[in-house]
Nucleic acid binder design. Structure first.
Lengths: 343, 343
DNA sequence: ATGAAAGCGCTAACAC
DNA sequence: GTGTTAGCGCTTTCAT
């Protein structure tokens, strides 16, 4: 409550409407058994006084805040800002307000999101677990209403919403093989110690390459620190310095892909003539790069809707008893000029 | 409060520590007059019990929520997602949590941010006023602690933090004139009825063009609906259809610039040879387009810090009495290959 | 279908 | 410096 305004209390409305506070409360919360006459009276009184609930008081009394947290690496990646937008929209439909927590994929901040001070003021948490360990996901202070997003090796007994990253990686490799590429490089964050989204993507790629009877060459796996455009540009320099450069580069997201394309152009390498390039996430930008970037699109809206839906279910009466569910949303390969020459 | 956990109340801590609830409260809120011995005892008890404040209860009792709202058009524009990141960081330093409200530049949602149900649960509001009118900014329910960002014709008696968009536009035009360009087109959202950020930018551009003794040609002012990449692409088609196409295109943001560059390339137009292109916002993407996009960079971090600082001041004891302040943050022209041929 | 009373967990006066 | 006493505005049993 911000104070100053909002002086009008529920009790005041009750007085004007000539009913009890409880009845006003019933009207506000759309309780079923209120006569139409009473409801109309109360609504008139609310309008007249300009009444609005005090959410702090409601939260204290009802033990529900109406907030959910979305803990993601950062909004500076279009993938996450788009996801955030969808989550906000999906949450609004259930009168939930979204708190965005930027974790930077750091263990400390992911932990804080799940069990920090703020965690006790949200009715649920949606988390992308990049660095956090299993113990912290289920520890003493961990939020009981948790949905995990993205591929990860974390096997906490929590709901999980993700796309099939390994399958997506496989399709991408197969597409490149079909274009006659055989020396496939990858550029992306190297997993630290645990199997997170990046690691699983690596595995999917490796498997696909090997199933084709090709070798996964160590010098073609370029680790970067941040999965951003400048990292992609640097990786290109490393790859072009090799005795036998790759003929295809798979980037772990389109941001890296953007940097890779820019650098290849500067270096005078033709795409896809000399080297094909592809990414993940299907950022809008990728339709406007030169050449347009082939990418794997994930159904972010479905992820968002599903997360909110699970949270809602668990916040309900017997939600805690539900067994954890794993939801896999769709993805599709969007082929563009960076892997297939146009005309 | 999420319930289930957090069972530990302040009173429990007091009991374990052997002090009163008030003393515990004093410790938590860093009240000055607490003896070290007491503080240590209380902190030990808190750690032992795993105590954490109930923010809902605190909000209700103290009439301060610890939330501020950031109401911006949308996170899908890197300009705003970056700004949001900075605001979150700045707010965190003062233990404030940021609620992001996406307005889509719609009047209704901007209004809601300032005076809607949610507005009474935040200690302050940072708003980019694209469509809202003066009356709604000061109306009955409007939040009393409001900071406006971005250029706008709105003259509400609220704090205002902005860059000098007109000056920036002027510098950009002068740069283009210095490169020998004379037929300067602009692509961007046309202001509806009131002088918002876009309109002011238009004016700055027009003035600069006219001061140079050139004419502002109506057919060179291309209105678009969303200031996004696809809009830029479409605008190019319109401009190239003219009898005398422009020799420079100023885009109202870098997103549009990205679309313009992509389309010019497709159409076989050389940049900057045939047409120079420039934008606003200095997105990271603009360093990786082909050619890299000349752009005006605004000091977003300064905007964020300043907004939080003003909100903080007004949330303080006699903040309401302070006269509204207008802060102008820096900007700079970042010249790249889209306006000046390299080598 | 509506009312009365209790209390959510904290902070804020005011005493001491 | 620390304790005591009231609420903050709402929801929630339990009656009726």
């Amino acid at each position: 409550m911000s104070g100053r305004r909002g002086r009008v209390r529920l009790e005041d409305v009750a007085e004007v409407a000539g009913v009890s506070a409880k009845t006003v409360s019933n009207v506000i919360r759309n309780y079923r058994y209120v006569s139409d006459a009473t409801r109309t009276k109360v609504e008139a009184a609310m309008a007249e006084l300009g009444y609005r609930v005090n959410l702090s008081a409601r939260a204290l009394a009802s033990n529900q805040t109406g907030f959910i947290a979305l803990a993601i690496p950062g909004l500076d990646n279009p993938y996450y800002s788009r996801l955030a937008g969808y989550v906000i929209d999906a949450a609004r439909e259930h009168d939930w307000i979204v708190l965005i927590e930027q974790t930077g994929s750091s263990e400390a901040l992911e932990k804080a999101a799940v069990s920090g001070a703020g965690s006790q003021l949200v009715d649920g948490v949606i988390l992308q677990p990049d660095a956090i360990g299993h113990a912290d996901l289920t520890g003493r202070f961990a939020h009981h209403n948790l949905v995990l997003i993205g591929e990860s090796g974390v096997t906490a007994s929590a709901d999980h919403v993700t796309a099939d990253a390994a399958a997506a990686a496989r399709e991408l490799v197969e597409h490149l093989l079909a274009q006659g590429r055989s020396r496939i490089a990858t550029v992306g964050i190297r997993p630290q110690d645990r199997p997170n989204a990046s690691e699983l993507r690596y595995r999917g790629l490796s498997q696909a390459v090997e199933s084709a009877g090709l070798q996964v060459r160590a010098e073609y796996l370029i680790p970067v620190s941040r999965n951003r455009r400048p990292d992609g540009a640097e990786a290109v320099d490393q790859l072009l310095a090799l005795d036998e450069p790759p003929d295809a580069i798979i980037c772990f997201n389109d941001l890296v892909g953007s940097g890779v394309l820019a650098r290849l152009r500067e270096r005078g390498v033709r795409v896809p003539g000399d080297i094909a390039v592809a990414g993940f996430d299907d950022n809008e930008e990728s339709r406007f790069t030169y050449p347009p970037l082939t990418s794997v699109a994930f159904d972010l809206e479905a992820i968002a809707r599903r997360c909110v839906q699970r949270l809602l279910l668990r916040a309900g009466p017997d939600g805690a008893d539900q067994p954890p569910v794993r939801t896999v949303v769709g993805h599709r390969l969007v082929v563009r000029g960076s892997t297939v020459a146009s005309d």
